[in-house]
């Protein structure tokens, strides 16, 4: 019955000829033929309008409910909308709406910070895919790498890309730090963010280093052996370090034992490296990255290219600058 009502009122609005028809038989019974006829007539009367409406909306998809539900504002070629495009997008909103016209110039930033972050994303992506094929156990680890290299579709390129992206990330981080130093970008008010960056540099190196052991081959094994042997010599906390033995350090309770989960690089070390590499350090690094990016914005965006300052203005408050015109 409700179905009927809707149809009737709809008809009434659209075509007067049907309105007279539709009102009368409401309480009487109708033959199936009449209902079909009515439906066909209504279809003919309404469809051209509906189709036209649909075509119109396809011409301008930004007016559709689907579009506006995703993007939260309509699309216009206006400055306001360009700003909204950035501000109302969760992935882009770390950017300001507008930036210094010279800061998009490549020679200033070298793009290394952004490239580092992009490489982190690439590494997360390829790393997760690698995790599907890898078991961090002495029996399987090396075989899994062989399996990846020879049998898994695109497995070889996946591993290669993870390895090279990791190397590239270390280079990009170091160059980023070099650029930030050379442009004096660690100076007030960005001192704290420089510190966050130093921690991220260390975390990047640790990420790379923990990943080194995972193929469980000679290269990784000896690199990690050499690396962790140094922990033995930690002052106070290592069994061979200065004052270590005086404090009761042995190969079975010192800081190296804690790192490896044993006194040699073995199954426990592999598992520990795996967990640090795949879970713990990425999470810690992500937290520091959030702070790093947030502070870049809070400290006034990227540092420049700023107008040069003269030595005569150095010890005065930065008043002359605004007069000079940014």
């Amino acid at each position: 019955m409700a179905d009927d009502d809707v149809k009737v009122s709809g008809d009434g609005a659209r075509s007067p000829s049907n309105a007279t028809n539709g009102g009368a038989p409401k309480n009487g019974k109708k033959g199936i033929g009449i209902i079909v006829k009515e439906e066909v007539e209504a279809f003919r009367a309404e469809m051209p309008g509906k189709v036209k409406e649909q075509i119109e909306s396809v011409k301008d998809p930004t007016k559709t409910q689907l579009y506006t539900s995703i993007f939260r504002h309509k699309r216009d070629e206006t400055p306001r909308n360009r700003a909204l495009g950035v501000l109302s997008n969760v992935f882009l909103h770390l950017h300001p709406a507008k930036i210094n016209r010279d800061s998009v110039r490549y020679p200033y930033t070298w793009g290394m910070g952004g490239i580092t972050f992009y490489l982190f994303i690439v590494l997360t992506f390829t790393g997760v895919l690698l995790m599907f094929y890898y078991h961090p156990t002495k029996v399987q680890a090396f075989r899994d790498v062989l399996y990846l290299e020879h049998d898994v579709p695109f497995g070889k390129i996946l591993r290669n890309m993870h390895r090279w992206a990791a190397h590239l990330m270390v280079i990009a981080v170091e160059l980023h730090m070099f650029r930030v130093f050379l442009t004096g970008s660690y100076k007030k008010p960005r001192e704290f963010n420089w510190n966050v960056g130093v921690i991220l540099l260390v975390l990047t190196l640790l990420l790379s280093f923990t990943g080194y052991l995972l193929p469980d081959d000679q290269l990784g094994f000896w690199a990690v052996t050499v690396g962790t042997n140094m922990a033995r010599a930690t002052p106070l906390l290592g069994n061979e370090g200065p004052f270590g033995s005086q404090l009761g350090m042995t190969p079975y309770n010192d800081v190296r034992f804690g790192l490896l989960g044993g006194s040699i690089v073995d199954a426990n070390a592999l598992l520990r490296a795996y967990i640090w590499h795949c879970i713990a350090i990425p999470i810690i690094a992500s937290v520091f990255m959030i702070v790093h990016f947030w502070r870049v914005r809070k400290d006034g965006g990227i540092s420049g290219p700023a107008p040069v300052m003269l030595a005569s203005e150095a010890d005065k408050p930065r008043r002359a600058q605004s007069a000079a015109g940014a």
């Binding site: 090396f142 790498v145 062989l146 290299e149 070889k156 591993r159 290669n160 993870h162 390895r163 090279w164 190397h167 270390v170 170091e174 190196l205 790379s208 280093f209 080194y212 193929p215 469980d216 081959d217 000679q218 290269l219 990784g220 094994f221 000896w222 690199a223 052996t225 050499v226 690396g227 040699i264 690089v265």
Partner: peptide, 23 residues
Amino acid sequence: SAPLEEPANPNLTMNPAKAPWYF
């Protein structure tokens, strides 16, 4: 291709045993 040596063998020392390049 990414390097892959023989399986880890504590009884066979690599010479030279080098750390990753950044260290």
